[in-house]
Design a protein around this nucleic acid. Structure first.
Lengths: 258, 258
DNA sequence: CGTCTACTTGAAGTGAGTCAATAATGGTGG
DNA sequence: CCACCATTATTGACTCACTTCAAGTAGACG
């Protein structure tokens, strides 16, 4: 949190896995691994750098390595045989990439910004997980969080409007401390419009239009291509179509446990 | 040996987890658990029945139980605060339901047909998985398959047309032997149009129109509400937008590793 | 055999896509 | 440091796929 990277990783204690818990209003990130587990993982890991645009691996490659992101942003993309691309997920600090791909990587992974990662040979990792069931359970937990995130994304793509999709995506960035420089309101958008569009299931023109509409309506301030800030949190939450942060809308939303 | 439940289910050897592997053209289902592992799981499990329409659990309930389906079909649904429903997944024979929900179930689960399941208390299961890392690794493997399935679904919802979505859904049913009575071509559609619509991200009218169009075009035969059969496999594969089963289309599809 | 619900069909509306023309950005070399 | 160019993003006009609204029809079940 407070430190930065000297040349080793952010917090220099080895691989790191976070999950984000959502309890009603409060949201908290928590480290899944104990210092000791991180040390044991560090014994298998080596640190690797990628430039923006580099591929960590390609769809169909034999799956040999799991990556744990130390800094930077990556995406995982699937090619649709008609030439289009789908961005399946973005990966930030503490995320796990290339996990349990059953022989071959199911998607390609590409660095969006300069990237520093731990790379873990998959067979050594598997041996470790067989020896250490508690550690393995932490991986299981992370994986189940990814699953829930993927399901949420499927719901968003299946049911939500263009405005909702883009707002939800901006919210995803906003929730990540790494995207805020020195904890101000300013949020960095590391990827280009095409990546956003391929992630939220729209065309880049539609992404642009939504962004400009939110800007015109003074819900957010869009500053160039790679920066924005939320101006009106309530309006923004309304745009996402979710319950607002401050309790103020006493509508008909008090049936099931939300 | 196979002591425990004798009056029990179809294959009377305890919980069962399958994954479906896709190697180019060939597709194979494989049992992840050894007979011994299944026996050990059976010691924790009890068998439970549900009627069509019954809820196994509701969104927000404390997560206490993992279900392994013996027979029947269930769905997992999320409520969108505007009252709409999203069907996140359908669960068939051998599937795992309610896995690792971190305190509370993230979605509701409801039986679509009469349902028989093994129910596994989550804390006992967790203890077992801590003691048995190899078994745990099988759960990890299943979970990673679910993740990939959810990502695939997200791509489908984000990028594919109505025809493709419905065809892909029908293909999902067709690939499951349980949906074929006595291995003929006839496929059962256990769920109603609303469930299909909420799963593929369309309105029920659109699902109906696509179904009728495929019927009129003699790609499939729709027999009442709950039965169909594929008449023209190549046309059907074209409708899904995937590479055809029989190699016959030598178009421009030989670039990247597909 | 009648009634209820689930499904189908048609006509009209609309949100996002497409195509095409600018306009910002940002990187590069003069 | 600025001018230039190649990219990347925005904007506008038009189209189309899917939705919406509104009947009608057919299965299922008592």
């Amino acid at each position: 949190m407070e430190s930065n990277q000297s040349r080793a990783p952010s917090d220099a204690f080895g691989p790191s896995i976070y999950i984000t818990q959502q309890q009603g209003t409060t949201r908290s990130a928590q480290q899944l691994l104990s210092p000791d587990e991180r040390r044991r993982l560090a014994l298998l890991a080596s640190i690797q750098h990628f430039e923006a645009g580099d591929f960590l691996f390609h769809e169909g490659d034999p799956a040999t390595t799991v990556y744990n992101i130390i800094s930077g942003v990556a995406k995982s993309v699937a090619l649709l045989e008609d030439g289009r691309q789908a961005v399946v997920a973005f990966f930030l600090n503490h995320d796990l990439l290339g996990m349990f791909e059953a022989q071959r990587y199911a998607q390609s992974a590409q660095a969006i910004t300069p990237l520093t990662v731990y790379s873990l040979p998959i067979d050594a990792l598997e041996r470790l997980l067989r020896r250490d069931p508690n550690l393995q359970l932490h991986f299981l937990c992370k994986l189940s969080h990814e699953l829930r995130a993927a399901q949420r994304q499927a719901i968003v793509l299946g049911k939500f409007s263009a405005i909702q999709r883009v707002a939800l995506f901006l919210d995803f960035l906003d929730r990540h401390p790494q995207m805020h420089e020195r904890d101000n309101e300013q949020v960095t958008i590391p990827m280009d419009r095409a990546d956003i569009a391929d992630y939220v299931g729209l065309r880049i023109e539609s992404v642009s239009r939504v962004l400009q509409k939110l800007h015109r309506d003074r819900v957010i301030h869009v500053d160039g291509r790679h920066r924005f800030r939320i101006l009106d949190r309530n309006a923004f939450n309304r745009a996402m179509g979710s319950p607002v942060t401050a309790p103020e809308s006493i509508e008909a939303s008090q049936s099931a446990i939300t």
